[in-house]
Nucleic acid binder design. Sequence first.
RNA 1: AGGGGAAUAGUUCAAUGGCAGAGCGACGGUCUCCAAAACCGUCAAUGGGGGUUCGAGUCCCUCUUCCCCUG
Length: 331
Amino acid sequence: MQSANGMGKKKLIVIAGPTASGKSSVAVELAKLINANIISADSMQVYRGMDIGTAKITKEEMKGVRHYLLDEFAPDEAFNVAIFQKLAKQYIEEIHSHGNVPILAGGTGFYIQSVAFDSEFEEMEIDRTLRRELEKEYDELGAASFHEMLKKVDAGAAKSIHPNNKKRMVRALEYFRLTGERISEHNAKQRAKRSPYELYYFVLNMDREILYRRIDERVDKLVEAGLVEEVNSLLMQGYSRNLVSMQGLGYKEIAAYLEGEMSLEEAIYIIKRDTRHFAKRQWTWFKREPACRWVDISPKDSAQDVAKRILDVIKKDSSRIQEMKTHEDGV
RNA sequence: AGGGGAAUAGUUCAAUGGCAGAGCGACGGUCUCCAAAACCGUCAAUGGGGGUUCGAGUCCCUCUUCCCCUG
């Protein structure tokens, strides 16, 4: 019998948080405690050959815990939420079928949402042409006229999307043309969804000052570890600067440096700044997600400590759900 | 010490004597198929004192601070 509060549902643990908060190692420690497997929820770590810039977890750091969705794509392959969701759902099922618990770990809130709340995406692989056309139309008509056009078919979307936001303007109209449904209505429906999982959604949280310092330090370390060489090697292999994967933090800036557009110092400054901005956007995302539980950590806490604290919360919740279940059965 | 120059938002720069603006930043936010992307909003300044003028960031005097040159 399926009902609210996770009864009858399968467990899914999420370890999220801003970049450089220590998610990866906490996820590993937690996985060791409960015999779980980890699915990476990261839009950049799926790419092979992009290791240093994405601060990808190493074999040793995995400590024998199985990780999914790392290194699955070449840097010039298309990747997006829909693809992520499809694969992640497959892996979750596979992990459950082995009797293990899946941990979704990463910083891409949008991707986590798509799995944790099972967003619906239509099949639309083929339709790159329509999007191209709409993008062209947007450029030709200008933001204001395009906005008017959208308003005629989907007033709700037109109201909530800023005319300057080309990506979402185009997407909203594309969605309508493709499905005949308004994206504003679709989104409202999706937002009302409950998780199909017994969901434990944790967000690692750290003092802002401290996190920003960690980001600066990490960028310096990445450069020392050979970020420039990594980007150079990708370019030499023929991966173009305008690939989506090459828009990742650290990659576009170092590519610009290698092309002589800026000094290395400038590139490093920009990477640090933009990574801080990124962390801020991640916070904003998780803040508006009501399912999130914030785990305050300080740099002194070891990954094991944090993992234990998280496990305590899971146990408590889990036993409450169990109680409710037996109570319901007894009635 | 003498001579010259500068002083405007956290920072880099704007502003015929006529409503002090912009970029970067900091802060807040949006997000349901490019999301490490894309986009929006808010904050914040004329170094101190005097004068000229209907009106001074702008002109004059003075103090302070900084830069350059000479010694």
